[in-house]
């Protein structure tokens, strides 16, 4: 038996744990606190806002009542002119209302969600096929592929940004919004495929071979054994890998910035937040609220997948 701790040891232990947890959590608390603070309160070092100030969230989520539009008198006279068509009037008005201050957070979130979701699904699916083959089937170049995955997994995106950009320019994908988004999707696919293959491959290796053999004895072909036994059995791990890929795509900044710069409507959250921060509208409460809202889905995913994630990551060699 290990010795029981003395009171002093307990105090030291709890102090260290507390210090570590505070170190990890403090920046999050800072973000949350600032997002809820009124501008006059920013200089206040306390984490608790003097007044709870939810405007930043309301604004980002489009819950603010539409502002009274300040229209110069000359324009107002134009608008009052009955000769002008209703359409023209709308356009004129729009010019004033969209004057820089609006940040379509919902739209960016949707963009990010869509591309991350599709990336997660495609990557998990393709990776499960390949990982199964590499983990379980004998075929030529199998070990080369198993090692190749490891290698590819470690070649970071930075090294590929020039050739990938040039490739998409050369095939003409970079010249349209659709093509750009497709390029970005493909890039997210390769950023997630190797890690997904690695995690799933290691997981499949832990499933006893005899399960597939039993399925084959029960009349399943190899493919049926995979679909009807291995895949249903791996659901929790597949979900974990999906979440992992989803989060990688959700967090990605580098390629989004290279490819989407000129297509503002299709910006993803990381790109949008960076633009928000560097724009003249940089207001701490808004940035922090936007940070919180970007963080939230990731935290939810994390809580959903936590049970399997830690194990999967350590088995999988670990990216990060």
């Amino acid at each position: 038996m290990m010795n029981k701790r003395t009171p002093l040891q307990s105090v030291i232990l709890y102090t260290l744990v507390l210090a570590l947890v505070i170190f990890c959590v403090f920046p999050f608390l800072q973000i949350l606190s600032t997002s809820l603070k009124h501008p006059i309160d920013w200089g206040n070092p306390s984490l608790i806002p003097r007044i709870l100030h939810l405007d930043a969230y309301k604004e980002l989520l489009g819950l603010m009542p539409a502002k009274e539009i300040d229209v110069p008198a000359s324009i107002q006279r134009l608008l009052d002119n009955p000769a002008l068509s209703a359409e023209k009037k709308q356009m004129l008005l729009a010019k004033f209302s969209s004057g820089g201050d609006v940040f379509p957070f919902g739209r960016y979130m949707l963009n990010t969600f869509v591309i991350s979701f599709i990336t997660g699904i495609c990557s998990t699916f393709l990776a499960s096929l390949a990982a199964y083959a590499i983990a379980r089937l004998r075929f030529p170049a199998q070990s080369l592929m198993a090692n190749g995955v490891l290698f590819v997994y470690m070649v970071g995106g930075v090294l590929l940004m020039v050739p990938l950009y040039q490739m998409s320019v050369n095939v003409g994908l970079a010249s349209s919004a659709g093509g750009t988004i497709f390029s970005l999707f493909l890039i997210y696919l390769i950023q997630t495929l190797p890690v997904a293959m690695y995690m799933l491959g290691n997981y499949f290796r832990t499933i006893p071979f005899s399960l597939e053999e039993a399925a084959m004895m029960d009349g399943c072909s190899r493919v049926e054994a995979f679909w009807r036994i291995i895949m249903p059995l791996s659901k929790p791990m597949l979900f974990t890998v999906f979440i992992y890929c989803f989060v990688i795509a959700w967090n990605e900044y580098l390629f989004a910035s290279v490819f989407l710069k000129q297509y503002q409507d299709f910006h993803t959250l990381p790109l949008a937040l960076q633009t928000l921060f560097t724009s003249k509208n940089a207001i701490w409460d808004r940035i922090m609220a936007a940070s919180m809202l970007t963080l939230l889905p990731v935290i939810i995913c994390f809580m959903l997948a936590n049970r399997h994630l830690s194990g999967g990551l350590t088995d999988g060699g670990v990216k990060g």
């Binding site: 393709l126 390949a130 083959a133 004998r138 995955v149 590819v152 070649v155 696919l189 190797p194």
Partner: peptide
């Protein structure tokens, strides 16, 4: 049969990785 199935299953992932990682390198 087994190696044919294996190659079929890895083909999409390996194709994408080949095209978008190995070729770019």
């Amino acid at each position: 049969n087994e190696s044919r199935l294996g190659l079929k299953l890895v083909a999409p992932a390996v194709g994408i990785i080949g095209l978008l990682v190995i070729y770019p390198i």
